[in-house]
Design a protein around this nucleic acid. Sequence first.
DNA 1: TAGCTATGAGACAGACCTGTCTCACTACTT
DNA 2: AAGTAGTGAGACAGGTCTGTCTCATAGCTA
Lengths: 193, 193
Amino acid sequence: MTSSPGSDKRQHVVETAYALFKRAGFHATGIDRIIAEAEVAKMTMYRHFPSKDELIVEVLDYRARRFESQLDRLAQEGITPEQKIGKILDWHERWFRSPDFHGCLFAHALAEFGDPRHPVFKAAARQKNGLKRRMQSILEEVMPRDRAESVATVLLMLIEGATLVAQMGQADTAIRDARKAALGIVAASRRPQ
Amino acid sequence: MTSSPGSDKRQHVVETAYALFKRAGFHATGIDRIIAEAEVAKMTMYRHFPSKDELIVEVLDYRARRFESQLDRLAQEGITPEQKIGKILDWHERWFRSPDFHGCLFAHALAEFGDPRHPVFKAAARQKNGLKRRMQSILEEVMPRDRAESVATVLLMLIEGATLVAQMGQADTAIRDARKAALGIVAASRRPQ
DNA sequence: TAGCTATGAGACAGACCTGTCTCACTACTT
DNA sequence: AAGTAGTGAGACAGGTCTGTCTCATAGCTA
């Protein structure tokens, strides 16, 4: 058993592949390009990942885990549901403004792998459902379960739509209007209907 | 000048390519597949379209024109802004429930051609901005310009998000929650703030 | 020292990709 | 009847794709 260099390579391939997929898309990024950028032999990659598709799934799961852990940290900073949702929107605002923002990798995966039975599609859908569940459980503190689910769905749609608008170059408008709408909906749903 | 068979071929290629792009994506659909399905010689295609990218742009523009003309017809059925926006949501509901719904082709184009300078990216962004402008002008009947623009952006984000949620297999939830949120926001924005 | 594991480097196969070219043919126009 | 525009069929080039294979090597462990 090797200790350090063994699994380093694997993770390095995942991170390099992530950067390339993000910029150029999944189909447009070839294995040769990934191993060249990662400075790794082709067999090293294929010994860690049985196929390109499984590498893609690994990349998505890795990014989903990172995303979840970042939101876990942020959730503790907020007290009320409005504050917690606000923190999630803050995170997206920073993301939209980051130097190489290229839209949502998970949404792109859904676009490129349209078959719902495909492992890549499933991995991408997992992330989206995870975000929805997170917001739903935040909302359940102050409203009944079914209403929390509806509101969480709306928030997810707003966030996904805002990400697309931001990708078209209107990040500022997107996040401002999304925040206004999101907080308005949460406030309105708090009151007994 | 040939009258009938000449331009029929061109349009037939566009429609065949559309059906294939929709199912399998742009990069994953090869020229050979398109011409085989359209039962057309390769040179026939390349005499009409200088490259695959330009065919893609043509497909997107064609679908955008169809979309616009359908909404033009629907807009006349509604009287109040709420009714007109409701008609647009009705259209999306039917679309989500249609037999081979595969998500939004324009959103997929943005995903696969991430460079904002790429003609395909521009063509896809045109369609999204067109839908936003349409909703904005509907809203300007009952609210000031800047507020109409904000609300139109929110409606666009809701629609795009709902399309993504629908693509993940929750079409019913998506359209119901999107409609509720959309009409609520329009109603709230009508009142002087 | 011997052995084992992970890796590097690159050839290779087989398929697919976009785009070009040639030649024959049809159908319409003048 | 002659000419012309559009088309069909397919070979072809040059490149890229994924995935497999071999062989050499570096470094750790027993």
